[in-house]
Computed example of a mutant assay.
Amino acid sequence: MTRTARPALGTFIFFAIAFALAIYFTFAAVQGDYGLFRRAEIDAEARDLAAQLAIVQADVAQMENLTKRLSDDYLDLDLLDEQARKMLGVLRSDEIVIR
Results as ranks from 00 to 15, higher is better:
residue 91 L to Y: 09
residue 78 D to P: 00
residue 68 K to L: 12
residue 28 A to C: 07
residue 62 Q to T: 12
residue 21 L to I: 05
residue 29 A to M: 06
residue 34 Y to L: 13
residue 46 A to Q: 07
residue 37 F to M: 14
residue 12 F to E: 09
residue 66 L to R: 15
residue 7 P to Y: 04
residue 39 R to M: 12
residue 7 P to A: 07
residue 34 Y to N: 14
residue 1 M to K: 12
residue 36 L to Q: 13
residue 4 T to Q: 14
residue 16 A to D: 11
residue 73 D to S: 10
residue 96 I to V: 05
residue 30 V to Y: 06
residue 38 R to I: 01
residue 44 A to T: 03
residue 38 R to M: 15
residue 22 A to G: 01
residue 9 L to R: 12
residue 90 V to Y: 05
residue 37 F to G: 01
residue 70 L to E: 11
residue 53 L to I: 05
residue 75 L to S: 08
residue 68 K to H: 15
residue 98 I to E: 14
residue 9 L to V: 10
residue 22 A to D: 08
residue 59 D to K: 04
residue 24 Y to P: 00
residue 24 Y to S: 10
residue 6 R to H: 07
residue 45 E to N: 09
residue 24 Y to Q: 08
residue 62 Q to R: 13
residue 76 D to T: 03
residue 42 I to S: 00
residue 16 A to H: 04
residue 37 F to E: 07
residue 71 S to N: 09
residue 68 K to Y: 08
residue 6 R to Q: 06
residue 49 L to R: 08
residue 7 P to I: 06
residue 39 R to K: 11
residue 4 T to P: 02
residue 15 F to H: 13
residue 65 N to D: 15
residue 39 R to C: 03
residue 77 L to M: 03
residue 2 T to R: 08
residue 17 I to W: 12
residue 21 L to C: 05
residue 2 T to K: 04
residue 7 P to V: 11
residue 60 V to P: 00
residue 94 D to W: 02
residue 57 Q to T: 04
residue 22 A to I: 10
residue 78 D to T: 05
residue 48 D to G: 06
residue 83 Q to D: 04
residue 43 D to W: 02
residue 43 D to F: 03
residue 69 R to H: 03
residue 8 A to C: 03
residue 75 L to C: 04
residue 4 T to F: 08
residue 15 F to P: 00
residue 78 D to K: 04
residue 42 I to H: 01
residue 18 A to H: 00
residue 71 S to L: 12
residue 67 T to L: 06
residue 16 A to I: 06
residue 19 F to G: 05
residue 10 G to K: 06
residue 77 L to R: 15
residue 43 D to L: 08
residue 74 Y to A: 15
residue 10 G to H: 04
residue 79 L to S: 03
residue 22 A to K: 03
residue 28 A to L: 03
residue 70 L to G: 10
residue 9 L to N: 09
residue 47 R to N: 11
residue 46 A to R: 15
residue 98 I to Q: 09
residue 77 L to P: 01
residue 26 T to P: 01
residue 30 V to G: 01
residue 30 V to C: 02
residue 50 A to L: 06
residue 58 A to K: 05
residue 44 A to W: 04
residue 88 L to N: 08
residue 59 D to Y: 07
residue 72 D to R: 05
residue 57 Q to K: 14
residue 13 I to M: 09
residue 84 A to D: 15
residue 11 T to E: 13
residue 76 D to Y: 01
residue 79 L to W: 02
residue 4 T to C: 09
residue 88 L to C: 03
residue 5 A to P: 00
residue 43 D to M: 06
residue 1 M to H: 11
residue 59 D to P: 01
residue 65 N to Y: 10
residue 76 D to C: 05
residue 58 A to M: 11
residue 48 D to V: 01
residue 20 A to V: 08
residue 81 D to W: 03
residue 95 E to H: 10
